[in-house]
Each structure stands twice: as structure tokens, then as C-alpha cells.
Design a protein around this nucleic acid. Structure first.
Lengths: 99, 99
DNA sequence: TAGATATATCGGGAAAAGCCGATGTGTTAA
DNA sequence: TTAACACATCGGCTTTTCCCGATATATCTA
């Protein structure tokens, strides 16, 4: 749990947006409804919604993952990302009492 | 309450250190014991402990203040800084439920 | 096996942040 | 009112982050 790495990951508008979108995949990624959201949302859906290039969003997802804020699952040729709520809980407590 | 501004302010090792030191002024700034800690710790104490220049630390304190993480009090020629605990509480709840 | 598709990684130019020394501003003491 | 002190701001160099296009890798389909 590297505070600094987490805060850096959270220091970007687009990355905050992505985390927020992932709170409600059904509402924010209707394009993936057919496939379902068991493992989260695939990269293609996210980068189109973000309005940035595929490479940038892929990098952003890596940054979020290294910080522990999301986790990924590979299914066939798709990689699905979802929030790692545990980290948010721990971070919340940390902000309250340790920082 | 600008999340992004807060996370950016927290994205620097020295600034995190400063916030941490300000949790226990008595323990971390013995050089100011004579004057007391009613309004926090003055800039001179902080920049010497940080090991960076006065100008840099002054700027860092401004960044922390703009983010709402510290507040300052001018007394004579000194400016004292202390943590703004309210912001940490709000941020903690925000991380838990809104981000 | 070849081609298409989804994602990751690489190289790099532009913008922002890190940090410094120099200088400006407000306050106190002589 | 001058000098000294505490702090803030400015200009600039260096490092990091932002974000792109190009390319590599993995998987699936024909």
C-alpha cells in the first residue's frame, strides 16, 4: 500500500472519471450489455468513452492497477477491468488516521 | 472541495512528510517549544526539517493550503501552519463512497 | 497458417511539477 | 527611517507526467 503511488494515480481527471464510471458499469457502458459485466468493463469500451487514444487509456489502466485501485481479468482477447473496492476502504481509513 | 487538487497536493513525498510532522508538532519541532504550538508551526521550522529551500517549502505550504489540507495564521512576522483536520475527515468519507 | 481484433508497450514532443537562487513584501527593533 | 528578519513570489532549469502514433503481442477465426 504505497500512499504516494495511489495519490499520483488519482491525480488525473480522466483516471478519476474512469474509476467513477466503473462504479456503475451498466449505466456507463451500455455498449457492453450483451456480454455482461461479471469481470468489469473491457478496455475498448473505456477508451472510447474517455475520448483519448487506446494507448493512453491502456497506460492509465496500468497505473490504476499498479496502485491497486482496479484489477483485471483476461477473457479470450479481452481484458476486463473492475474497481478494487478493498483498496478504497483501506485508503479511506488511512486518510482518516494515518496521513 | 476539489478532489483533483487535493490528490495533486498529496502526490509529493515532502508534502506528505510535512502533513505527517504537523500531526505531532511537539515531537517533530522541538525548536519551537519556547513559542508554543497554539497556531501550529512556523515556516522556518518546517523548511529546515524538510531539507529543501525556504522558497520551495513556502510554495508547498501554499499548495497544501489551496487544497484545504492546512490553514495558516500570521502572528507578527511569523506564519504558522497547522493541519485542517476537517478536510481529512471529508476526504476520508469521499474516498469511501464517492470516488 | 494468415488475417483480423483487442490490448500492451515503445519512442517522443508538449505541458506540468519539482526545486533552486534572487528578489519583493510585510513586520519588528534600533 | 533603516536594518534585520520571516515569508512569499518570480524566473528558470531539470525531471516527470500527459498523451499521441507506431509497433509488438496475444487471441481468435477462416
Amino acid at each position: 500500500m504505497d500512499h504516494l503511488e495511489i495519490f499520483k494515480a488519482l491525480s488525473n481527471k480522466t483516471r478519476l472519471d474512469i474509476l467513477n464510471w466503473l462504479k456503475e458499469p451498466e449505466a456507463n457502458f451500455p455498449g457492453q450489455e450483451a456480454e455482461g459485466f461479471q469481470h468489469g468493463v473491457c478496455v475498448g469500451q473505456i477508451w472510447q468513452k474517455a475520448g483519448l487514444t487506446q494507448s493512453t487509456v491502456s497506460e492509465y489502466l496500468s497505473i490504476l492497477q499498479r496502485a491497486g485501485l482496479v484489477k483485471s481479468t483476461r477473457v479470450g482477447q479481452w481484458t476486463y477491468y473492475q474497481r478494487n473496492e478493498e483498496t478504497f476502504q483501506v485508503l479511506s481509513r488511512l486518510v482518516q488516521s494515518e496521513i
